[in-house]
């Protein structure tokens, strides 16, 4: 397979996953802003999670409307849903022949919808729009799942999506870690039930969490769930398990092992052997930061190994 094709598959999946994650974060921000004590401060954590702090700071976007516009519609903000969808489609268009017809249609269908949308209508139709973004990502994944040949291209596609998903969960933990520390450790303030619920909400994990832990919210359980749970599809441990499976298939297919294989397996071993008490003892924030750095390194190593 052409290296450029592999690269485009990888990044197409990353951008699509990122568009979907950002849509979920906007949902979270909207919900938090409506609760007592919410407001712009909650939007700030959304902005920090998407990594667009500098972009917003330079523009002084101070109202909820301006923030939604920047996160959803503004193609100038590289982290916006619009920018991510446009880049995902550009990646896909560059490798049309590597996609099935259905995958391409999922990418192409209505791709200009966000282009000429004004702020007013976007706010009015926000839930519909966000559902639409999530549905497109789901349609794309579904058509890849049921229609794409299981050759090396499939693994590059999956790798992009999984790395982005792990990264997004880690970024959310990085921004929200202080609300997940045990009661005895006071960092900042304003910890409450809503904060914990919002973290789960952003990852569409509320029901899954209750399913696994039954009882009430407990911050360390939420941290455990998002970081170490092996069966929740947005947990870091789950993503790494799948990343290792993809890399192992590539190793068998090509008969070559690279640095990226060691990095991924090393991370997976740690995620599987640690418990949350130890993580918190060592420092949740430090641990999350280490995994963010590890994931970025892994992405670079994959590109180097397959000549992107």
């Amino acid at each position: 397979m052409l290296s450029r094709t592999a690269e485009n598959l990888f990044w197409m999946a990353r951008y699509l996953e990122r568009a979907e994650s950002t849509a979920r974060l906007i949902e979270m921000g909207r919900r938090m802003a409506m609760l007592p004590g919410g407001g712009l401060r909650e939007w700030q954590s959304v902005i920090r999670t998407t990594g667009a702090d500098a972009w917003f700071a330079a523009r002084g976007a101070a109202s909820e409307a301006a923030i939604i516009h920047g996160l959803l519609l503004d193609a100038g903000n590289p982290a916006s849903v619009h920018a991510c969808l446009t880049r995902a489609r550009a990646n896909g268009r560059a490798i049309r022949t590597a996609l099935t017809q259905e995958m391409w249609e999922a990418l192409n269908d209505g791709w200009r919808r966000l282009e000429n949308l004004d702020e007013q209508s976007a706010r009015r139709d926000l839930p519909t729009l966000l559902d639409w973004v999530k549905a497109r990502a789901a349609t794309f994944r579904g058509s890849a799942e049921t229609g794409m040949l299981r050759h090396d291209g499939y693994d590059f596609l999956r790798l992009g999506g999984l790395i982005e998903r792990a990264d997004m969960t880690l970024r959310l933990l990085n921004v929200k870690y202080f609300v997940l520390l045990p009661e005895t450790e006071v960092v900042g303030g304003g910890r409450d039930h809503h904060q914990w619920a919002s973290v789960l909400y952003a990852l569409s994990a509320t029901r899954a969490y209750h399913h696994v832990y039954k009882g009430d919210y407990a911050p360390w359980k939420i941290a455990d769930f998002l970081l170490l749970n092996p069966i929740f599809p947005r947990s870091v441990a789950f993503c790494y398990g799948q990343i290792c499976a993809c890399l192992d298939r590539l190793e068998r297919r090509y008969g070559q092992r690279h640095d990226c294989h060691d990095t991924a397996h090393d991370a997976l071993r740690r995620l599987e052997s640690q418990d949350i008490a130890a993580v918190i003892r060592d420092g949740l924030h430090e641990t999350v930061n280490q995994y963010i750095a590890r994931t970025a390194r892994l992405s670079d190593q994959i590109a180097a190994a397959y000549h992107f």
Partner: peptide
Amino acid sequence: DQMGVELVEPQDLFVDEGLVWMRTTR
């Protein structure tokens, strides 16, 4: 796509040892 061959861009190709090659993941 219809012919089942690779669609390449110029940066995918290079010349070495008197032949033309394409960059692939292998």
